[in-house]
Amino acid sequence: MSMQHTKTKRAVKPKQSAEEVGPTEASGSVLTSSQEDVSKKTKSKKTEIEELRSFLSQEIASKKEQLKSFKEKLNFKEELKSLKEEIKEEIIASVHEVLEAWKATMEENLTQQIEEVNVKMNSMESSFNSRLDPIIQTLNQQNTAITQLEDIAETSAQTTKKLLSENKRLSDLLSKITEKCIDLEGRQRGQNLRIVGVQESREGNRDLREFAADLLKKVLNLDQKPLLGRAHRALGRRTRADAPARQLIVKVQYDHVLDDMMKKMVRSRDLLFEGDKISIFRDYPVEVTRKRVLFTETRRKLKNIQDLRYGLMYPATLRVTYKWKEYFFTDHKEALDFAQDIENKTDD
Results as ranks from 00 to 15, higher is better:
175 S>P: 12
175 S>H: 10
175 S>V: 08
176 K>V: 07
176 K>I: 01
178 T>G: 11
178 T>H: 05
178 T>C: 07
179 E>Y: 01
180 K>E: 14
180 K>R: 06
180 K>N: 08
181 C>Y: 12
183 D>P: 03
183 D>G: 05
183 D>M: 08
183 D>V: 03
184 L>G: 15
184 L>H: 14
185 E>V: 04
185 E>S: 12
185 E>P: 08
186 G>W: 09
186 G>L: 04
186 G>H: 09
187 R>K: 15
187 R>V: 04
188 Q>M: 09
189 R>M: 14
189 R>A: 05
190 G>H: 13
190 G>A: 13
192 N>T: 03
195 I>F: 03
195 I>V: 13
196 V>H: 11
197 G>K: 04
197 G>V: 04
198 V>C: 09
199 Q>R: 15
199 Q>T: 12
199 Q>K: 15
199 Q>I: 04
199 Q>V: 05
199 Q>G: 15
200 E>G: 08
200 E>C: 09
201 S>G: 12
201 S>I: 05
202 R>E: 02
202 R>S: 06
202 R>I: 02
203 E>I: 04
204 G>Y: 09
204 G>W: 03
204 G>V: 07
205 N>G: 03
206 R>Y: 11
206 R>A: 13
206 R>Q: 12
207 D>R: 09
207 D>T: 06
208 L>A: 11
208 L>W: 04
208 L>P: 00
209 R>C: 14
210 E>M: 11
212 A>T: 15
212 A>V: 08
212 A>Y: 06
213 A>C: 09
214 D>C: 13
214 D>W: 11
215 L>M: 05
215 L>T: 00
216 L>D: 00
217 K>G: 07
